[in-house]
């Protein structure tokens, strides 16, 4: 199962790269640097997904005390932090040639940075508390509070004047993006979602084995 999923991830990523570099046309205004979008946008959407899963798993853990829910939350937070890191790094790299700066403290960038730090905090809480049950309980609370930042990140471009453009996806109304650009984005989003599922599945399995080894 894991091996099949792994190969599916490889196929998805190759398809995403072929679409991003071979099929999608050069964007007229920004040139080829716009191709960073096929990495940047799927990364943040998968990070949203990851933190949504942390929220659900945290609520499930606090209500049922099932360790499986805690393991899923833990794994999803780790992978979500990776994708948030990629979002921030790729955004900075894209920002330099297009905005003229790597970073600015506008609402979107700042709220994503806060999101990153909050989930690092979630992972830190897990590492700092020795008692397994208490670590799970405290981090579940952090996982619920931190999720409040996700809508703030997404809607920040509407609520405040920012340098960042409005959302490309997850917005009301029909898409304003030309077909090939949108299709490329969707293929890359699917590929990144597969990477997320693969890594979380693998991490959950390892967490269970680690606990069994310690018991």
């Amino acid at each position: 199962m894991s091996r099949a999923l792994g190969w599916l991830v490889v196929v998805g990523l190759v398809a995403g790269l072929v679409m991003g570099f071979g099929v999608a046309p050069r964007e007229a205004a920004q040139g080829n640097v716009q191709r960073i979008m096929y990495l940047h946008v799927p990364s943040v959407l998968v990070a949203y997904l990851a933190f949504g899963v942390v929220l659900v798993a945290s609520i499930a853990y606090l209500t049922t005390r099932r360790e499986a829910a805690d393991r899923i939350g833990h794994a999803s937070a780790e992978v979500g932090v990776l994708f948030t890191g990629i979002t921030i790094a790729s955004g900075a790299i894209w920002g330099k040639p297009t905005w003229g700066t790597w970073w600015t403290w506008d609402a979107r960038l700042t709220s994503v940075a806060v999101l990153f730090v909050m989930y690092l905090g979630y992972l830190l809480v897990r590492g700092m508390v020795d008692d397994r049950e208490r670590a799970a309980r405290y981090s579940a609370v952090v996982g619920i509070v931190a999720a409040l930042d996700v809508p703030l990140v997404h809607f920040s471009v509407y609520w405040w004047r920012t340098l960042h453009q409005p959302p490309t996806m997850l917005k009301p109304g029909p898409s304003t993006m030309p077909g090939l650009f949108a299709a490329t984005l969707m293929v890359n989003l699917a590929a990144f979602a597969l990477v997320y599922v693969y890594l979380v599945t693998k991490r959950v399995r390892l967490l269970r084995r680690e606990e069994e080894a310690l018991a």
């Binding site: 205004a29 040139g31 960073i36 990776l82 790094a89 790729s90 790299i93 894209w94 330099k96 990477v195």
Partner: peptide
């Protein structure tokens, strides 16, 4: 606008390092 391929390579390379490293 120039194509800035080095920025594209840096972004994808960094993502590869992060996900591959994990």
């Amino acid at each position: 606008m120039p194509d800035n391929w080095s920025f594209v390579a840096a972004a994808y390379g960094l993502a590869l390092v992060i996900l591959g490293g994990y």
